[in-house]
Deep mutational scan, measured.
Amino acid sequence: AVTGSQTALLLRAFEKDRFPGIAAREELARETGLPESRIQIWFQNRR
């Protein structure tokens, strides 16, 4: 499950760019500790 702090970080990124590229998703994966594929799905679901 995604924690509150991970969600906050993802929401901030989403406000800046609703369609992040692979580099941005990989950076978010490093920052959150989540797999990049999970980040991609999160953005798809959020849109």
Results as ranks from 00 to 15, higher is better:
A1I: 14
E36M: 13
R47W: 07
R47M: 10
A23E: 14
F14M: 04
T3K: 06
R12S: 09
A13Q: 04
L11Q: 07
R12C: 12
Q40P: 01
L11T: 12
F14E: 01
A13Y: 13
Q6Y: 05
Q40W: 08
R46G: 04
R46P: 02
I41E: 14
G21V: 03
K16F: 10
A29M: 08
A8M: 13
N45T: 09
L11E: 15
Q6S: 05
L11I: 12
T3D: 08
P20D: 01
N45G: 06
L10P: 00
S37P: 08
K16L: 09
L28H: 00
A1H: 10
Q40E: 13
S5C: 15
A29F: 02
A13T: 07
R47K: 03
L11G: 03
Q44T: 07
R46V: 06
T7Q: 13
A1C: 15
I39Q: 03
R30F: 07
Q6F: 07
Q44A: 10
T32N: 00
A8R: 11
I39E: 01
G4S: 14
E31R: 10
A24E: 11
E36A: 09
P20Q: 01
L28W: 01
P20R: 00
W42N: 02
I39G: 01
A24F: 10
V2L: 15
I22C: 11
E31D: 09
L9G: 03
T32Y: 01
R46L: 07
K16D: 07
T3A: 05
Q44D: 11
R25F: 06
F19V: 04
T3M: 09
F19K: 04
S37F: 08
N45C: 11
Q6W: 13
G33K: 05
F43I: 01
E27D: 12
G21P: 09
R38W: 15
R25E: 02
N45V: 09
R47L: 09
R30N: 06
G21E: 07
L34Q: 01
F19S: 05
G4V: 13
A8E: 11
A24V: 14
E26K: 14
T32C: 06
Q6D: 04
L34N: 00
A8P: 02
I41V: 09
G21Q: 05
G4M: 13
F14L: 03
A29V: 06
T7P: 02
R12K: 14
F19I: 04
R38I: 15
A23W: 09
R47Q: 08
L9I: 15
S37T: 12
K16P: 04
G21L: 04
E26P: 01
A29S: 14
N45L: 14
R47F: 05
Q44V: 12
I41K: 12
E15F: 12
D17E: 09
L10N: 00
S5W: 15
E15A: 11
A8N: 08
E26G: 06
E36Y: 05
P35K: 07
Q44M: 08
V2A: 06
G21K: 07
A13S: 07
K16I: 10
E36N: 05
T7Y: 15
V2C: 03
A8G: 05
F43N: 01
S37Q: 11
P20Y: 02
A23K: 14
F43E: 02
G4F: 13
A29Y: 02
I22N: 10
R12L: 12
G33R: 03
R38H: 12
E31P: 00
G33E: 02
R38G: 06
L11M: 15
T3N: 09
S5N: 13
P20M: 03
R25P: 00
L10C: 03
I39F: 01
E31K: 11
I39T: 01
A8C: 14
F19L: 04
A1T: 14
L34M: 07
I22V: 13
R12E: 08
G33I: 01
L34D: 00
I41L: 13
G21Y: 02
F14G: 01
F19A: 05
L11C: 12
I22L: 14
F14Y: 12
Q44C: 02
P35W: 03
E27R: 15
T3W: 06
G33T: 03
A23F: 10
W42K: 02
P20W: 02
P35I: 05
K16R: 09
I39S: 01
Q6L: 08
E27N: 10
A23M: 10
A13G: 03
T32V: 07
A1Y: 14
G21C: 03
S37N: 08
F19H: 07
L10V: 02
T3S: 12
L9T: 09
T7S: 11
E31A: 09
